[in-house]
Computed example of a mutant assay.
Amino acid sequence: MKLMLLTALFPLFSYSAPNPSKNKELLKRFYKELYVDWNMETADEMLSPDFISHDWPEKGQKGPKAFRKYYVAFKKAVPDAKYEVKDILADGDRVAVRWEMRGTYSEPFPGIDILPNGQTVILKGVAIYRVEDEKLMERWVVSDLHGLLKTIQEPSK
């Protein structure tokens, strides 16, 4: 009741509660448009200018431009990469996505010292996103890099 009274008296200080369902739909669209269709222009619409991914190798990079830069290098290394969302859960301003990426390792990727020779790659992981004002603000990723490196070290079958 007090919150409603305050927002009525001071509309500049209105509070918008997180909408988990809306946030979940935002992430479903994000994965479809950016990680399946690879429509990187969508990053400008969906990511905050201050978006930070806490897993990027170069700290301090932020926003849609940094996102596109990272994934241009990634897509060059794995040109047929496709992500599949396995689970998606939302609570408050956070959305957790369990995903799996499959593709072919075709070009070197910065930070990986194993030369590509057409190895099939499978990378599984979980990403947690923070959403604010219908934009992605932050992301934390945990992925099975050990499994990925083990796979690409093996001779291609």
Rank of each mutant, 00 (worst) to 15 (best):
K59E: 09
K76I: 10
H54K: 07
R98M: 12
P57W: 05
P49C: 06
K82D: 04
P64S: 11
I88N: 06
I52D: 04
E58G: 12
A66I: 01
A90P: 02
G60Q: 07
P64E: 04
F67W: 01
P49D: 14
A90L: 00
A77Y: 04
V78D: 00
K69W: 14
R94I: 15
P57H: 11
W56K: 00
D55H: 11
V72E: 14
Y71G: 08
P64H: 03
E84G: 11
W56D: 05
G92E: 04
V72I: 15
A77G: 12
D55V: 10
R94W: 10
K75F: 11
K86F: 13
K65N: 05
L89T: 14
G63N: 05
G63F: 06
Y71Q: 07
A77F: 00
P79S: 05
P64C: 04
V85H: 01
Y71W: 11
I88S: 01
F74N: 13
G60R: 02
V95I: 01
K65I: 07
V72T: 15
P57R: 07
D50Y: 15
A96H: 01
D50E: 15
D80C: 02
Y71F: 14
V95C: 07
D80Q: 07
S53A: 09
V85C: 08
F74I: 03
K86V: 15
K65C: 06
F51Q: 04
E58Q: 09
S53V: 09
K62E: 06
W56I: 00
V72W: 10
D80L: 06
Y70D: 12
P79A: 14
K65Q: 11
D93N: 13
D87P: 07
K65V: 09
L89D: 11
E84Y: 07
G60C: 07
G60E: 06
P64M: 06
R94K: 15
R98G: 00
F74G: 03
R94A: 11
D80T: 10
A81K: 01
A96C: 08
K76S: 15
H54A: 08
V95T: 03
F67E: 02
E58C: 11
A81V: 05
K86I: 11
I52K: 02
F67Q: 04
K82L: 13
Y83I: 13
F67T: 02
P64L: 03
D80P: 02
D55Q: 14
P79G: 07
A81W: 01
D55M: 10
V95Q: 01
V85I: 10
K82W: 08
K86N: 06
K62I: 08
